[in-house]
Design a protein around this nucleic acid. Structure first.
Lengths: 193, 193, 193, 193
DNA sequence: AATGAATGAGCATTCATTCAT
DNA sequence: GATGAATGAATGCTCATTCAT
């Protein structure tokens, strides 16, 4: 029960930000969900912005770390890519609130989070770029594709599938099936012939 | 100069919403940019929400129409897909404000625009799905890819490229080059072998 | 149809002010009811305040005149009083909008009608005072009652009955019966024994 | 000084509503008079309407209670009526702000206070009706007078005197003398001969 | 550290009034 | 005279943040 108060606030903020969006989310509501007083939040975070940034900075860390762990288990870039896609969609399925934040709020954070650049997000994207470069080095992937563009293409594709699933009320869509389809398209698309 | 006042407000709103985001955008600022009085906005629109919705509903129409026009000029689904990608990124380049809105704000609009479903956006997505189905019928594309998933994959890829370009301050990236790369990946990915 | 435009506005204002109250009444609504343009109202009246004041000043005139006419038909102050009560409640029944204004809005007009003193209303009250003085002179009424207080007591009594009737949705109450009861109480109350 | 903040706001609202009227009263002004911040008012009351309704609901209670207390000290309905009249005018004299509200604003409250029926006011009126019925049962008052009409006649008379006194700038009029005159008229008017 | 009542700057919206046609 | 689109000052209410306890 008496888990770390800071962590409780962070979890509550993820839930409320994901549900209501940054602007419609009320600090008092976050406090209520976290079961702390409003003022307590300001003992652990500078302000509402800082709370949002902290979510990205701190909650993305274990996600990225976990992803890296999974990827090291495979040698081929092709396998790594498959794992990445599956892994990402698993994450979405397991942490839909966090997913919602990453997808929607992060994209416009630069608007309201004064000068925040979203470094963790970039780190995450970089993983894809690195896999692709590895794939090119290992002669698995075509040379005429720019890794920087590829990472955006893949992330965009996966993210759109995720967004759609997140926004769908019923959640009847099978993310595993979608993952397979994405891999089918992208892998053939970049494979060295 | 003295164009339709309604249109002037709409254009101003696009600019301000794109720059500041829906919540940080001030109605008074929109009025200032449109060079009308604050109250005038409420002669043409119910409220701030309605202004946002009207942008999507009315400004997306010519965009979709223009896209459809371009597509009819080609027979093969492959060519249509190439055109779609190029066309979309051209649009982004020519109407960066509108692009920004479509990419970011629209995605979270369901949050604050009470029950707004974004039908125009769906129409836009449907175009891709239809091209893909045509491609399958014309034996250009693989049969084992679900058109509904494909439309998301392609849109997600293109949109991510667009988002990245939109958010980049310098705009040094060549969207035309990106378009070529996306086509290179996706078309080989879905081509019937 | 094309009656005097000024009169049409005045009648519309009575209706709308009575229905909505001075503050909730919109000038545009008055214009709509009068079937004129908003700006036209300002050709005939200084502003919203002036419109309200003009109602009292001009619409009360015929009412007072009519009352005076009826009263001259009787000699005895007792009869005059009975006529006054009946006549006033008749007026209420026939001009409920005007009645509503006199009862409610006039009482607080000093609040929002800068320095308006309601002279017509005072004239109306004076009629009662004059009848009472006559009654005292003609030895019909007690001498120990102050005419100024009496006029308020009678008007208050009649007005409260009227207010209650006006506010009642069903209007089932018979104002004629009420008039008889008021007369019964007041006349015996002031009669010289 | 540091009395209950809610009470302070209520008192300030009575003063400002009485002075300026409901519509001209500014929430910020009420806050200033109550010596609290604007937002504080909304911690204790839903909105401006609720503030007005709360005044009637909560401030009328002790008034009615006090009136009832005074009335139980007398057996005869005649005495009760005299006490009621004196007591009411005393109240007006001691709480002129509250009186002003009851007289003027309450009457039109149905206009702006969505569906508010003013139950406390009716309770107050019922007291008079009950005294009159008692007087009829105790053979003090005439049988041919409808108690429901009588309560309006008496209240109207007393209220008009009160309104006049409230609106008079100088307040030179002696309410005690007026009370005696009202009693003189009404009591003889309803007395069983 | 924790609380939550209090703060007050900030903003969407309204509507009496004006004025170009 | 008549119009009604345009104006913009004015205000109720919200909510991130503070601070006395």
């Amino acid at each position: 029960m008496t888990t770390d108060k800071r962590e409780r606030i962070l979890k509550a903020a993820i839930k409320v930000f994901a549900r209501d969006g940054f602007f419609l989310a009320k600090v008092e509501e976050i406090a209520k969900v976290a079961d702390v007083a409003t003022g307590t939040i300001y003992l652990y975070f500078e302000n509402k912005d800082d709370l949002m940034i902290s979510i990205f900075e701190e909650e993305m860390l274990p996600i990225i770390e976990h992803m890296r762990q999974e990827l090291t288990a495979h040698e081929s870039a092709t396998d790594k890519l498959i794992v990445f896609i599956n892994q990402h969609l698993n994450l979405i399925q397991d942490h839909p609130d966090m997913a919602q934040l990453m997808q929607v709020e992060l994209r416009q954070s630069s608007k309201f989070l004064h000068g925040y650049e979203g470094t963790r997000f970039r780190e995450y994207l970089a993983i894809i770029g690195d896999i692709f470069k590895l794939g090119q080095a290992q002669k698995e992937f075509r040379d005429d594709i720019n890794p920087s563009i590829f990472k955006q293409v893949l992330f965009g594709a996966v993210d759109q599938i995720a967004t759609n699933w997140t926004l769908s009320k019923t959640k009847r869509i099978h993310l595993a099936a979608s993952a397979q389809q994405i891999s089918a398209i992208i892998l053939r698309g970049v494979a060295k012939q």
